[in-house]
Simulated scan of single mutants.
Amino acid sequence: MSGRRNRLALASAAVLAAAASTGVVLASTGSPGAPGTGSTVAVAEVGAPVADQAGAAATTAPRTTAPQTTAPATETPTTAPASKAAKVAKAAPTSAPSKRPAPPATKLLDYDFQTQINGWYCGPAATRIALTVRDKQPSQDSVAADLGTTTSGTNSAQDTTRVLNKIIGTDFYRTTAIPGGAATPAQMDRLQADVVHAVTSGYAVVVNIAGSATDLDGGWHSYPGGHYLTVVGYRDDGRTVKIADPAIPGEDSNYWMSTIDLANWAATRGYSS
């Protein structure tokens, strides 16, 4: 019996030594000294509740880690990976978008001038001057027929726009009205921009005016019943315009005027550009 106790003591000592080396707590169940009974050594997990360690530790299922119910966290890219072609395109050097060149500060058109052949042909004569810029040389009579001109004159800039587009074979021209008694700053700016665009594109502007205005040389021009004239150039970025006036013969037929004065001169009427 003493030999059996010694062996049990040695076994217990060995288990205790192993437990000490692995950092676990040991609990003994049963009575080591009771005859006819064995001694079972139970190993309890470190960190388990005290009640589990003191009781039937051998009958408790070992503690396991609950299975992970969600996929392991990974670094998800915020954007879809670019295709190989896209990467190549991104890597390729890109040039700055091309910009339309600024119009010249000054531009004059070549034209063929004719004085109007009667008192009511200012519309046909001014329209014909604009047509010669595009290499069209109709007679004033043929232009008058297209315009519907009578001894009372030509109705409006709507007619000059229509005939210019018809004879040239284009849809470039548009009619702009200045309906008030005086041009607004916005209408003055619009006329300046329209003149620059038209002349730069190679088209003259036909303006329907009424009343009186002074040119830059001090010349006084008065048409109380209305008149048509042609803008054939500009300078100072369109702040001043060159006018070909079919009512005036000779060299005095062309003169310079500020765009502001021309816009006010065209008030109540309009222009084709």
Rank of each mutant, 00 (worst) to 15 (best):
M1N: 10
M1W: 04
R4Q: 09
R4W: 10
R4G: 09
R4A: 13
N6K: 14
L8Y: 02
A11P: 00
A11V: 06
A13D: 08
A14S: 11
A18D: 14
S21E: 11
A27E: 08
S28E: 13
P32D: 14
G33T: 13
P35K: 01
G36T: 01
G38E: 11
G38Q: 06
G38I: 11
G38N: 12
S39W: 10
A42E: 06
V43H: 01
E45A: 12
V46D: 02
A51D: 14
Q53G: 11
Q53L: 14
A56I: 08
T60R: 15
P62T: 15
R63W: 14
T64Y: 03
T65A: 14
Q68E: 10
Q68M: 12
Q68T: 12
A71C: 02
A73P: 13
T74H: 03
T76C: 02
T76R: 13
T78Y: 10
S83Q: 04
V88R: 00
K90R: 15
A91K: 06
P93Q: 12
P93N: 07
A96W: 11
S98E: 09
S98R: 14
K99L: 03
R100A: 09
A102V: 13
P103E: 04
P104F: 02
T106G: 02
T106D: 14
T106V: 11
D112C: 00
Q114P: 00
T115Y: 02
G119F: 01
A125M: 08
A130H: 06
V133D: 14
R134V: 00
D135L: 04
K136E: 15
Q137K: 09
Q140M: 10
D141I: 10
G148S: 08
T149A: 06
T150G: 04
S152E: 09
S152T: 13
S152M: 08
S152Q: 14
D159R: 07
T161N: 05
V163K: 06
I167D: 14
I167G: 00
I167T: 07
I168M: 10
G169Q: 04
T170K: 01
Y173E: 03
R174T: 15
R174S: 15
T175F: 10
T176G: 09
I178E: 01
A183R: 03
Q187W: 12
Q187K: 05
D189R: 07
D189N: 15
R190S: 15
V195W: 03
V196D: 05
S201F: 00
S201N: 12
Y203Q: 07
V205F: 12
V206A: 09
A210F: 04
T214H: 12
D215T: 07
L216R: 07
G218W: 11
G218S: 06
W220H: 15
H221A: 04
H221E: 08
H221N: 09
S222P: 01
P224K: 06
P224G: 10
G225T: 13
G226F: 11
V232L: 02
R235F: 03
D236C: 01
D236H: 03
D236G: 03
D237I: 01
K242I: 09
A247V: 01
I248W: 13
I248V: 13
P249W: 07
D252N: 13
N254A: 10
W265Y: 15
T268D: 02
S273I: 01
